[in-house]
Design a protein around this nucleic acid. Structure first.
Lengths: 212, 212
DNA sequence: CACCTATGTGAACGGTGTCAAGATAATCTT
DNA sequence: AAGATTATCTTGACACCGTTCACATAGGTG
């Protein structure tokens, strides 16, 4: 593999290495996938020694989280845009789902990194729930689609459900096994739309309540 | 970390090393998670040299796939049992979903390994679609719940949707952020049930068709 | 028995994450 | 401005990893 080349020569002190490292990380992620994303490779790509990153991130993990954070921000704004450009409330919900899945399709390595980010798997990724993340948009879209904002528990369950469904589709939509179905439906996006609608929550909002 | 100890002394030739390696892999997975699962650690745990596994698996990947295969088999039978023990067709569908998610909860590292298994992420895990895997059960349960077996495309979409939803819930149900909601709902399983039902497909089977 | 093949060992290679010690530059104090 | 302090980067080392190669050992077949 022709290794990516570092930019021009730089002074002893880089100036803004943390930012450069994050960008280098994303570049490597795009080119070589998560497997290629080693701390040393990132340092190499940024043109510094293998130990340099440790002055900005205590860990490899911490660097990955920084990369992941960028991903969450971008996912958040993609979701926001999708929601804004929908004709009505129910379409907004589906649009959000499609945008979510498309983001994962277009940035598969980044998306994986976003979920591995926690590195412990027992905690939701830090930035998934932040202010301008997708959560808020899903929640608000659900309300606009008819969910009762007073029933907090119901609303949270629906938000979780929508998020889970989108995540599941996002991780599986790329499988080759679905190729024929995709072409039969007219491409990738119609396929995603169809799956999301079959999942249910994206299509039918007001259902009879079910008690546990 | 107190390293796991190898079993008693063995003759020069192990007898059934591949099996032993797979078991060792699962043990390590349970104790230390996916991060601890190195080829060398597996060999150590099985009491052989680091190079020994290469006579049974061409790759680390191939070993992991063997471990994953065991997981898929067990997931398949868990799903089968859940389906069989349901009073009616619609309950069967939900039961399958709950069993799926519970399997992932009880074997988190194994479950992750099952999906990483392909090692390329563009292919569905090999054993996910095999004869006695969950796929068949979901499909059949959908039919029994009222899906038209003649509408192949519709059926495949519904199966995919159900699988995606279950997978999404499986990966996110463990997040700490949902703890309070879990206790409010009376435990882990009611929570999973509630989320699955909110996802939609597990609760409402016969909906008006939606055209792309 | 001799021979071949399957299965094990050992040592080695390059790659990885991480840390400690030292070099260098920017900044702060006086 | 000079000296001291702090932030940043480099070098070199350590243990671990996946993998390969040459060699050792055992089982099975002629």
């Amino acid at each position: 593999m022709a290794h990516l080349q570092a930019q021009e020569i730089r002074p002893y002190h880089h100036g803004d290495l943390s930012r450069a490292l994050i960008q280098a990380g994303r570049r490597i992620l795009e080119v070589g996938g998560p497997a290629a994303l080693s701390l040393r490779a990132v340092a190499r790509e940024a043109g510094v020694s293998p130990a340099a990153p440790y002055h900005h991130f205590k860990d490899k993990c911490e660097l990955l989280e920084a990369v992941a954070k960028e991903g969450w921000m971008e996912l958040g704004s993609a979701v926001a845009k999708a929601r804004a450009s929908a004709p009505d409330a129910r379409a907004a919900l589906t649009n959000i789902g499609v945008a979510y899945v498309c983001f994962a399709r277009d940035n598969p390595a980044l998306y994986r990194t976003m979920y591995d980010g926690a590195c412990d798997r027992a905690t939701m990724p830090d930035h998934a729930k932040e202010d301008d993340s997708g959560w808020r948009h899903v929640r608000e879209a659900l309300i606009e689609a008819g969910a009762d904002p007073a029933e907090e528990r119901e609303l949270e369950l629906a938000t979780i459900a929508a998020w889970c469904a989108a995540h599941g589709v996002a991780e599986m939509a790329g499988f080759k096994e679905f190729e024929s179905l995709k072409t039969a439906l007219g491409g990738e996006e119609p396929f995603v739309r169809a799956v999301l609608e079959h999942v249910g929550i994206f299509a039918a909002m007001s259902r009879p309540k079910i008690r546990a």
